[in-house]
Every structure is written in structure tokens, then in C-alpha cells.
Design a protein around this nucleic acid. Structure first.
Length: 467
RNA sequence: GGCGACGUGGCCAAGUGGUAAGGCAGGGGCCUGCAAAGCCCUUAUCCCCCGGUUCGAAUCCGGGCGUCGCCUCCA
């Protein structure tokens, strides 16, 4: 069985086989949300790619330690908290809670650690002190800046060379107190209306980039395996993280850098003023099953831009229904002893294709194709006489494997088939059909249909389920 | 000005040298009392265009056209 996992490493711009630092273990850092508003579906596209990553690592036998931070102190959180007239903590708590609710709604497997930036200030101070000792910093107006000219490999992740990249680029003119426009702030001087930490560095608050370096190193060590985020983070955020972390420790920060492409909506960049900006809650309110949203967001490989459309949501809805229908057929069809049986080779082929697809830089489109092929073969076997007990167990294992990574199998909302009132009507309809009283039979079916109950007459009796 | 991505059937999308996965939608059929579900067949001799390399290219090279991203807070 294939057990190779290969990822496209932004650092090398190549596919590389994953080899962890510690045998059998994978330590990964995933940039989390800034908790100043409800995350949008674009945020979740990235978080779901990371969820698939951790689940795939687990399928391939790795013990995963994942850290996903919450940025709860930065320009936006401070500004919004002030606008709302509540404390920073109270304000960010609201959206942290919403974030965790959304993760549960989407069936995201929880990370091992969800550190909040405000709880790691001492660790940030420690790193900045090391950087100061190493001559990587300078102070200006009470703030501390990173002098990127002291970090020779600055730009190795993004390919951006500051000196070659000035003409035409927009430069942050507000930061006039910096020696070089590309330098970035590590520690911000106190300001009216902003929270202040009294530290060895003097009073102030952390810059955004240092937060991730501190949380990552505190929980995963100075060197760890995989660092993820959205493509927009490559520069400057991740570039700066590398400069800070490696500048302080002298050793490699993260070995594999994986970046998720963005999504657009109906071909356009998502923006509130365009009216194509959606949060998960917006879609749930419109009546879409979160599982459908999950399916759509993971159906396109993570390095490919995803065009989120309502047509696409509809297609995902159909695909989810197909899975549910097949599971229901499987449950309602008696086992047979061989006729029209499913070949074990078919199941084996699924496992092979599925793992190869995921191993190939998390190719979820191919993994889904493998699943759909298995679904079709299972249905064909059911049509042709059934599946024997032994093979059925193998199919269960295969489905379980698919679901363990994709997380798109509908939960058996049980009860289907055990409502006394409905059963009574079905019995009556059965009698009517036996008497060829199809008018009455159809009347009963329509009546149930109006209540969202769908009847199916199978060779093994009538079954029902909710729409 | 710098760096980079992409262009495959109506839609989404796999496929990076050997003759076009999968899903959705459409058409036809089987099954059914009729449905539902499912299955089968069907839709790209062709992968933006032009040239080249090769026995052979959607896949490699060159040129062109088009779309887009980053270089500024951003998943």
C-alpha cells in the first residue's frame, strides 16, 4: 500500500516527499483567524485545506500536533473593540467563540492547541531580546524594528528581493520612522487607546508578525515540520516570521511551507461592496447544509484558485445526496452470498487510488473521483444481487477511510425507519398497492412528501427518509 | 518596475510524453403500477492560437492572445 506523502513546498517551489523531524510525528503550525469579525468562506477554504492536511497525515500514520493561533491583538481587533466600547478581551472572545462554533459546524477536527496571542507576550519579548542581542533590531520613537538587511536570506520564501522591487511598488509612507521601508515592527510603542504591556523591552504591544513566531516556537519547538496559511501570507507575514525566528535561533524555522490559494465568488474577488461576501452563517441561513459547503470547499485542490458559485454548491449538494443514497441502499439491502458481488479488487483499487491522490500534494479532486467510482460500483453490485457480508465489511472500511480524511459522509440521522405514524401509513399504502388501489397509494405518498418524507419502493420493501 | 499562476466538453475539474478520470447539468434507455433511488448508453478525434522538438504532446520548447494574483492589512 502506498504510503508516500508529497507536498509542494513554497520554499523550494517543488514537490517534496514529506519526511518529519521525528519519526512518525508531524508538528504543524497553521495561521488562524484574526478574531475581529465572522470568518468568511475564503478563510474556511484555507482552514479546511489544513483540516484535510492533518487528517491525511493521520491516515498515513503520523501523530499530528497542530497549532492554530488566534490573533487577538492587532490594529483591527483594537480598533473594533474601541468602536464597540468593550474591552479587547471581551470583543475578541465573541469572535473566538463564533470561530469555534463554525469549525464544529464544518466538521473540522480540532487542533491540539489554539493559543491566543495575548497569552504569549512574554515569549514574544524573549525572542525580541534575542534579536536585539544579535544586532537585528533598532529602536525608533519607542518602537522596535527588525532591520532586514541583517538577515541575508530575507526573501527566500517569497522570492521578493527588496532591493529589486522598489519601482512601482506601493510603499507604506506612514512608517516614516523606519530606516528602510521594508523593515517591519516587532514592538509598538504605547499609543492612546491601545492596550499596553509593561515588559523588559519597555511598555508597548507586539507587532503582528512576532506573535506567530512566539506561539509556534513555544508549542512546537524552534524547528518544526509544516507551516501553513493562505497565499497572501507568504509575503510579508511568513517571510517576516522566518526572519524573526531564524534570526533569533540560528536554526531553520519550518521545513515545509504549504499555502492555500484563495477563492473567488462567481469569478470575482469577494468583497462586501460587490455583495458577494459570504460567511458560513450566511450560507447556512440560505438553507445550505454545512456538509455541502465543506464538500465544495475541499473539492478543488488547495493550490488551485476555487471559483465559489451557487451552481457549484448545487453540484456539491447532489454529490452529498449521492453518498447518502448509497449508504441508505447499502443499509436497506440484505446481504447476499455471492451473486452480483463486489470484487475485492475493486475495494483494494479504491484504497490505492485514494491514498495516491492524497499523497500527491493532497489532490482532493482525484480522491473524490476515486470515491465516486467506488460508489458507482457498490450501487451496481447492489443492483445485480447484493454484496456479501465479508465484502460489505470491506466497503465499510473503505468508506470510513474516505470519510476520515474528507469528512463529507452524512451522519446517519438514525431514526429513518422508526416512526410509528409513518410506518402505519406505509403499511396502509402497501395494502393499497397490493389491491392495485394506486390512487390511494399515491395519495399517501403525496401526503408524506408534503411533510418532507420521501418514499422509495425497493425490491426489499418500502423505505423512507427525510429530504 | 519586480515575482508568479492559470487558460481541458454547457459548468466544475483530473490528467505534465503514449493516445482525454470524476462530479453536476442535458439527451436516450433499463428498472418501477407510476415515482424515487440506481444502473447503462450518449456529449471534447480533441485540450486558447501559431510554430518547433519527438516515432508520438493537452502534457516539453519558442512566440502570441487572454484571465488573474502578490509586491499594502488580508485565508
Amino acid at each position: 500500500m502506498t504510503s508516500k506523502l508529497r507536498f509542494f513546498n513554497t520554499l523550494s517551489r517543488q514537490l517534496e516527499e514529506f519526511e518529519p523531524i521525528d519519526e512518525g510525528k508531524a508538528r504543524i503550525y497553521t495561521c488562524g483567524p484574526t478574531v475581529y469579525d465572522f470568518p468568511h468562506i475564503g478563510n474556511y477554504r484555507t482552514f479546511l485545506f489544513e483540516d484535510v492536511l492533518r487528517r491525511a497525515l493521520e491516515l498515513f500514520g503520523f501523530e499530528v500536533t497542530q497549532v492554530q493561533n488566534l490573533t487577538d491583538v492587532d490594529d483591527r481587533t483594537i480598533q473594533r473593540a474601541n468602536e464597540n466600547g468593550v474591552s479587547l478581551r471581551e470583543f475578541t472572545d465573541r469572535y473566538a467563540t463564533a470561530f469555534f462554533e463554525d469549525l464544529a459546524t464544518l466538521g473540522v477536527e480540532p487542533a491540539e492547541h489554539y493559543p491566543r496571542a495575548t497569552e504569549y507576550v512574554p515569549q514574544m519579548v524573549e525572542i525580541i531580546k534575542r534579536l536585539e542581542a544579535g544586532g537585528h533590531t533598532y529602536r525608533s520613537d519607542g518602537s522596535i524594528y527588525y532591520r532586514i538587511s541583517t538577515f541575508a536570506s530575507y526573501g527566500k520564501l517569497s522570492g521578493i528581493r527588496p532591493e529589486k522591487n522598489l519601482a512601482g511598488a506601493r510603499i507604506d509612507v506612514d512608517d516614516y520612522e523606519k530606516e528602510d521601508a521594508r523593515d517591519f515592527v516587532l514592538w509598538k510603542a504605547p499609543k492612546e487607546g491601545e492596550p499596553v504591556w509593561e515588559t523588559d523591552l519597555g511598555p508597548g504591544r507586539p507587532g503582528w508578525h512576532i506573535e506567530c513566531s512566539a506561539m509556534a516556537m513555544a508549542l512546537l519547538g524552534e524547528t518544526f515540520d509544516i507551516h501553513c496559511g493562505g497565499v497572501d501570507n507568504i509575503f510579508p507575514h511568513h517571510e517576516n516570521e522566518i526572519a524573526q525566528s531564524e534570526g533569533a535561533t540560528g536554526c531553520e524555522f519550518a521545513r515545509y511551507w504549504l499555502h492555500g490559494e484563495h477563492l473567488v465568488v462567481e469569478g470575482e474577488k469577494m468583497a462586501k461592496r460587490v455583495g458577494n461576501f459570504f460567511t458560513l452563517r450566511d450560507l447556512v441561513e440560505k438553507g445550505f447544509d454545512p456538509l455541502v459547503v465543506r464538500y465544495l470547499l475541499i473539492s478543488v485542490p488547495y493550490r488551485q484558485r476555487l471559483n465559489f458559485t451557487f451552481d457549484g454548491l448545487h453540484a456539491a449538494e447532489q454529490a452529498i445526496d449521492r453518498i447518502a443514497n448509497t449508504l441508505r441502499r447499502l443499509a436497506n439491502t440484505p446481504q447476499c452470498d455471492g451473486v452480483g458481488d463486489l470484487d475485492q479488487a475493486t475495494v483494494d483499487e479504491f484504497h490505492k487510488d485514494f491514498r495516491e491522490s492524497l499523497g500527491d500534494d493532497l489532490n482532493t479532486a482525484r480522491a473524490l473521483a476515486a470515491l465516486h467510482t467506488l460508489l458507482r460500483r457498490v450501487n451496481t453490485a447492489l443492483d445485480e444481487g447484493g454484496i456479501c457480508g465479508e465484502r460489505r465489511a470491506a466497503v465499510d472500511v473503505a468508506f470510513k477511510e474516505a470519510d476520515s480524511v474528507l469528512g463529507i459522509f452524512p451522519r446517519n440521522d438514525a431514526e429513518a425507519g422508526s416512526d410509528a405514524e409513518i410506518d402505519l401509513l406505509i403499511d396502509e399504502r402497501k395494502a393499497a398497492r397490493a389491491n392495485k388501489d394506486f390512487a390511494r397509494a399515491d395519495e399517501i405518498r403525496d401526503e408524506l412528501s408534503a411533510k418532507g418524507i420521501v418514499l422509495e419502493d425497493t425490491p426489499h420493501g418500502t423505505v423512507w427518509h427525510r429530504e
